Amino acid sequence: MSAVTPYRIATIKGDGIGPEVTQAAMRVLTEACGAGVLDFVMLEGGAGSHVATGEVLPAETAEACRTHHAILHGAAGLPGVVYPDGTEVGNELHLKLRFALDLYANVRPIKLLKGVASPLRAYEGGGIDYVIVRENTEGLYASRGAGVVLRGEMASDSLVITRKGTERVARFAFELARQRKGALRDGKRRVTVCDKANILRSYAFFRRICDEVHGDYPDVEIDYAYADAITVHLLKRPEFYDVIVAENMFGDIISDLGAATVGGMGISPSGEIGDSHGLFQGAHGSAPDIAGQDLASPVAAILSGAMMLRWLADKHDDSTLATAAGRVEAAVDRTLEAGDFVPTDLGGRARCSEMTDAILRAMA
């Protein structure tokens, strides 16, 4: 077993509720790991940084993200802070990091925690547990900043699918399936390819490459679902799914749908992962309408921090970090299941600070 101490975490609180949920995650992760294990290096970035300095991602922040062990991000974006073309400045923070650090796999766990009510009937008590792996650097979003608007009369963006990009995200998905226990319905390790291969050649190409990669994973079943059909299946039979791999835009859409079935964005973690770097943040936005009021749910940020610990544990062969991640996840489970403290986005009254304190007590 090897370990790096301290692990330097490039930490960007960002905008809106970002500072509150980041602080909550830092408190919980420090308690889980013990003093001196994590060094949170505070950095500037986001829409507020752009307003103050003209830089959404200052050079110092970009360099720290490149050289530190992992990245923890709160949220980014403020109303009205947009570029001349109307796109949001805040999004540019993690988009710049995504492409600079080649964070090609966006990982969104969709898990119904005990104590959380799902809008789907018959799935209480943990009946949903799958992961969506979204290709993060290509697809339709590769056109960002490069599309064409002609004379105010027409606009176009291009869908980009490459062999390299698809191969590596498909391999990531199959490797992840190997690490899991299989779908809740039947225990089978399964990768579902989400596409529109029946309509567009680009998606047929995406599916064909996933098929080729599957040849190296005979122990994992492969499955297919069109992007429109899977929105129905995720509502009617979510227990069938284990790992879903999708192109950038489709993955973005179904990830938010999946999050809604397990309680919403406020308790949904995410990670953007490449071969050498990992960025972790709650799946929610910056929610500036409740910023500074202690009303945000810290759960997504805290669970994203647990994802970060597991990623660091694998990367550095440090089992103590995996143990710490388990402590965090168990404490969140116990807190939500007890029902004494429920975040406001789940219909409760617990403030961000109160939820954080409750999770810390559950961990103790």
Rank of each mutant, 00 (worst) to 15 (best):
A3K: 15
A3F: 15
V4Y: 02
P6D: 03
A10L: 00
P19C: 04
E20Y: 04
E20M: 00
T22G: 01
A25L: 08
L29V: 01
T30W: 06
A35F: 04
D39E: 12
V41M: 07
G45D: 00
G46I: 03
G48P: 05
H50Q: 07
A52L: 10
A52E: 10
G54Q: 12
E55D: 07
A59M: 05
E63A: 14
E63G: 08
A64F: 09
I71Q: 07
H73G: 01
H73T: 05
G74F: 04
G77C: 05
P79I: 06
P79N: 09
E92K: 13
E92Q: 08
L95D: 03
K96W: 01
L97P: 01
R98L: 02
D102A: 14
Y104E: 02
I110K: 02
K114M: 14
G115F: 11
V116C: 09
L120H: 06
G125A: 06
D129Y: 03
D129Q: 06
Y130K: 09
N136W: 10
T137W: 05
G139I: 13
Y141N: 03
S143M: 05
S143G: 14
A146G: 11
A146E: 08
R151Q: 15
R151D: 14
S156Y: 00
L159Y: 12
T162I: 12
T162S: 10
R163A: 15
T166R: 04
F172S: 06
A173C: 10
F174Y: 12
F174D: 10
Q179P: 06
R180W: 02
R180E: 00
G182C: 07
L184W: 04
L184M: 00
R185Q: 03
G187L: 07
V191C: 06
V193T: 00
C194A: 11
D195R: 09
L200S: 14
F206L: 06
R207F: 02
D211L: 12
D216C: 00
Y217P: 00
V220Q: 06
E221T: 07
D223C: 13
Y224L: 13
A225L: 10
Y226K: 00
T231F: 00
H233V: 12
L235R: 12
F240Y: 15
F240M: 15
F240H: 14
V243L: 11
V243A: 01
A246K: 01
F250P: 03
I253D: 03
A259Q: 00
A259S: 11
A260C: 15
A260R: 11
T261F: 14
T261V: 14
M265P: 03
G266H: 04
G266D: 07
I267S: 05
S270T: 05
D275H: 14
S276M: 15
F280Y: 10
Q281D: 02
A283K: 04
H284Q: 07
H284N: 09
G285R: 01
G285K: 06
A287D: 07
S297C: 13
V299F: 08
A301I: 03
I302F: 07
A306L: 12
A306Q: 03
R310M: 10
R310C: 11
L312G: 01
D314H: 11
K315V: 09
S319V: 06
S319L: 14
T320P: 02
A324S: 09
A331G: 02
V332P: 11
T335C: 11
E337L: 10
A338S: 08
D340L: 13
L346A: 08
G348H: 08
G348W: 11
R351H: 09
M355P: 04
T356A: 10
L360H: 08
A362T: 07
